[in-house]
Amino acid sequence: MLKIENLEVNYGMIKAIKGVSFEVNQGEVIALIGANGAGKTTILHTITGLVAAKAGKIEFEGQDLLKIPAHKIVGMGMAHVPEGRRIFQELTVYENLKLGAFIVNDKKRIEKNLEYVYAHFPRLKERKNQIAGTLSGGEQQMLAMGRALMSNPKIILMDEPSMGLSPILVSEIFQIIKEVSADGTTVLLVEQNAKKALAIADRAYVLETGNIALSGDAKELMNDENIKKAYLGE
């Protein structure tokens, strides 16, 4: 479904991504884990066109994403929940969700998507007229996820959805990721919380300073001695 080949990304002189290849198949939950500064966010930003690649290929359902402007990518069925949520702080919850469905023209479809989001995040329904900037961190994360789901994505990219949340909320968010996956949406999940991510992922890639250091079945990686030491704190 999504195939990245020998991707290289530079920020000026800094080589952030140095030839990364991986793929995501339809229906999978793929975890991309790695330490701070490894390049996880950069990869997601390059996939959705916010950052330009220096070399390599990104193929989504047979189309070369590197040739497509950022604003056209969501229409192809790819939603991105960016790092730090980046909800529209000055707009209401409802207005944020409507913007998530910006590319959907069918009013009925928008209503249905809204119901779907409210069913998964009842809290957003209660607070639909609240200004998004006044939501709690957890609620903002829910809004960012709900906003992405409003576009009927085939694949959803999530960048550290657990960042800054209490353990209970983290569990709640991961539960919803599982549900979204069960509903048929493919998930590419970037996480620092390797334990949680590996627990719900099918496969995982471990990124170290711009390179894929390790990859494989999520359950096997969870038992890998190096992973345990470096990422699971055991």
Binding site: T48, G49, L50, A70, H71, K72, V74, G75, A79, H80, P82, R86, I87, F88, Q89, E90, L91, L99, G100, F102, I103, R147, S151
Partner: peptide, 14 residues
Amino acid sequence: LAVSEDRGAAQLMG
């Protein structure tokens, strides 16, 4: 309004 607040996020919305 979306572009004025966050150009990148606005692009992600299409």
